[in-house]
């Protein structure tokens, strides 16, 4: 399985990462080896396996519980004002 530059760039986009050149080379190399092994899974047949019945989970009752204090919600935000999180302008 060839992990070329185009694929790495695409995966960087999906993953919201910028890899350094070094990282790109290393990761591409590692991925090739790892994916080779993973490709062996195709040796396993594809017959549908009967799904074991799940235990019926209890759903949550529709009763209001107190929300958190706003200060706590915002506490760990790197940038905020009194009321909201701040991000750079979102392009429409």
């Amino acid at each position: 399985m060839l992990i070329d530059e185009k694929l790495i760039a695409y995966l960087e986009d999906l993953s919201y990462l910028y890899l350094t050149d070094n990282e790109k080379i290393r990761i591409a190399g590692d991925m090739e080896k790892i994916l080779e092994g993973m490709a062996r899974l195709s040796e396993l047949g594809t017959d549908d396996i009967p799904v074991k019945p799940q235990c019926i989970n209890e759903l949550r009752k529709d009763t209001v519980t107190p929300s958190f204090d706003r200060n706590l919600i915002l506490r760990n935000a790197p940038e905020k004002n009194n009321e909201m999180f701040i991000s750079p302008k979102v392009q429409e």
Binding site: L7, L11, S15, Y16, L17, Y18, L19, D30, M31
Partner: peptide, 20 residues
């Protein structure tokens, strides 16, 4: 930038693999 500076190599490797 935040993600690339904040995460180490192994984490990035697994994220890339996972996205793939």
């Amino acid at each position: 930038f935040s993600r690339s500076e904040g995460f180490g190599l192994e984490v990035k490797r697994r994220i890339m693999l996972g996205s793939f």
